[in-house]
């Protein structure tokens, strides 16, 4: 017969866990709301930068800027956006899998990484892959300046020729339940094919010069892409954590119900046993 005290202790510990998962869910929900707002707020910026970048880059030749130059990749750089903490469902696994796939698809090539989040660092350290830059605790630092910092490293590596391709992997935020691991080829900048039927592009004048404008616009474009992805990744992390913690809370609730049932049965059995003992004792005296 299960010990009553043990069951009671068990119920207490599951209840404690449930409280923690519930609190984590609420925190994730609050953070998610904020993250979603930032994603929405940054969207016009990214869109406008992309629009201008496309229209400027379309009118210039491929060799007019180092960030547009395309060659056979020998060394690749991957920006991996993982999280600092676990307990968020497949969030980290998905992004690490996507990054590992790029590495597997590029056998024999030099790979270096820029990683946000402790989970990614732990994962790739074990695999002995060259980590160029680590950004931990990025939830607090998350802002345009962080994106600028990452963009500066990536563009410097690319334009110096140390890497010939830059990828970015992150979880795209669809909704609270669905986050899509996404791989983006960041550099060289790819320009959508010119639409033959589109109205002829207006000829722009550039101030100070075409090169400077391209430089400015491309830099902003890379920054905004990274910024947008960082925000999406943050939203995804909190969405995934919210879903995972919601499931954990529900599981704890079921467990408590089951344990309470077992506890009551055991209690009932104990009472019955005692009554039988009393009755038998009384009978013996007669």
């Amino acid at each position: 017969m299960p010990n009553l005290k043990d069951i009671k202790r068990r119920i207490g510990s599951v209840k404690n866990t449930q409280q923690i998962t519930k609190a984590m869910k609420l925190v994730a929900a609050a953070k998610l709301r904020r993250a979603q707002e930032s994603v929405m707020a940054s969207r016009p910026y990214s869109e406008k930068v992309a629009e201008v970048m496309e229209s400027v880059a379309m009118r210039s030749r491929e060799d007019s800027h180092p960030l547009l130059r395309r060659k056979e990749p020998e060394n690749i750089l991957i920006i991996v956006m993982s999280g600092d903490k676990g307990l968020c469902g497949p969030f980290n696994t998905n992004v690490l899998k996507a990054a590992s796939k790029i590495i597997a698809d590029n056998p024999g090539k030099g790979v270096s990484l820029i990683i946000t989040g402790r989970k990614g660092v732990d994962f790739f350290r074990r695999r002995k892959i060259n980590i160029q830059k680590i950004i931990l605790d990025y939830g607090k630092k998350l802002g345009y300046n962080l994106a600028g910092e990452i963009a500066a490293i990536a563009t410097e590596e690319f334009s110096s020729g140390r890497v010939d391709r830059v990828y970015m992997v992150y979880n795209k935020f669809r909704n609270v339940v669905v986050q899509i691991p996404t791989t983006v080829s960041l550099l060289p900048v790819t320009i959508a094919k010119r639409d033959e039927h589109a109205s002829p592009a207006v000829d722009y004048e550039y101030e100070p010069s075409e090169g400077e404008i391209l430089n400015e616009v491309l830099t902003r474009y890379i920054e905004s892409q990274i910024y947008q992805s960082l925000l999406e990744s943050a939203a995804s992390e909190n969405g995934a954590r919210m879903t995972a913690m919601d499931a954990a809370t529900k599981a704890a609730k079921e467990m408590i119900e089951g344990l309470t049932l077992v506890y009551n049965r055991a209690r009932q059995a104990a009472i019955t046993k005692e009554i039988i003992e009393v009755v038998t004792g009384a009978d013996a005296i007669k």
């Binding site: 722009y204 550039y206 400015e216």
Partner: peptide, 15 residues
Amino acid sequence: GDFGVLPGHAPFISV
């Protein structure tokens, strides 16, 4: 330098 823009300005881009 600072520049003023009125409607009908020639298209251009500036840093």
